[in-house]
Amino acid sequence: MNYKVAITSGKGGTGKTTVAVNLFSAIHKNWTKKVQLADCDVEEPNDLLFFKNATLVSNDTVNQPVPKIDESKCTFCRKCEEYCEFNAITIIPSVNYAAVDPNLCHSCGACLHACEYGAIEDQPHAIGQIAHYQTEAKAAIAEGSLRIGSPMQTRVIKDLKACVNEDSDIVIFDAPPGTSCPVVETVSDVDYVILVTEPTPFGLYDLRLTVDLMREMNKPFGLVINKAGLGDSAVYQYLKEEKIDLLAEIPFNKEYAVQYAKGNLLSDIPPVIEKEYNKLADYLKNRIKND
């Protein structure tokens, strides 16, 4: 059984991907080679941008079952249309028209239950892809990508999580930002969650929402403060009041931000920053031993 860690943040731009990529690299370099990074931010995956010359190992299509209506069997009674909670079915009896919009369908199966004439059956509909890569250092990365226009992030994330390497010692899930369904799906069965925030009023506001979600889901979690040294001290007061573990502080460094913008996140890491990621990796290592 591998140990699953999700890294998420209440808002975009806090440095979630920075933490995920660097932690993955630190674990692979100093702890175990059997670590995998899975990019679950399927609407905009970008973890792979920071690994030069990664080799594509496999690429699989993610399909969603979408109903198709056989007009030769359909009586155009509109019962399936009434059952559909997502307005994905259009029935026009006057012109014998029946169709399902795959972009609105959530594959709930209500229409299949509603139809009494056997006029509806599921067919596969592509909504995204899952790609597996290997870095130059022989590290494994999996990436989910959603088809543009599809609302089914959670299905792609679920399939991505299902295909991680079972022999990995630890899997790092880079979750989407926010507190919506894709985040819930990503962290639903992980062993530990690392929250990333910045010491600003906006960062604290969204952190509160994320903390409420983690507690509602009964997930153990700790916090990493990125861009430490900017903003104010309100987030530190909040951690103290809520008794939340501060796992690491990544200091703001202009040159490091420049490296990020160039896609060189893993090159020339300042020692003070590298020390924090190694400390975070050691924390997880000790936590696994004690769990």
Results as ranks from 00 to 15, higher is better:
L204R: 04
A175G: 01
Q237D: 15
L207R: 04
P176K: 01
L160K: 10
V156R: 03
I170A: 03
G231T: 06
I170H: 00
K158A: 12
E198R: 08
T186V: 11
Q153Y: 15
V164K: 00
L246C: 02
K243Q: 15
V156P: 03
L204E: 06
D159V: 15
P199I: 05
E241N: 14
T197C: 13
K161N: 04
D189R: 00
E216F: 11
V190G: 01
I172F: 09
G203M: 10
C181F: 09
F202L: 12
G178V: 06
V193S: 01
E166M: 11
K161V: 09
F202M: 09
V156L: 07
I172M: 09
V193F: 01
E241A: 15
V183T: 00
R208L: 03
I225L: 13
A175F: 12
Y205I: 06
A234L: 12
N218F: 13
P220S: 13
A162V: 06
E185C: 06
E249W: 03
S188R: 14
D189Y: 03
Q153A: 15
T179N: 05
A162D: 15
G222H: 05
D174P: 13
M217L: 15
S180R: 06
C163L: 13
L213P: 04
E242Y: 14
T154N: 14
L246Y: 04
N218Y: 14
A248M: 09
L207I: 02
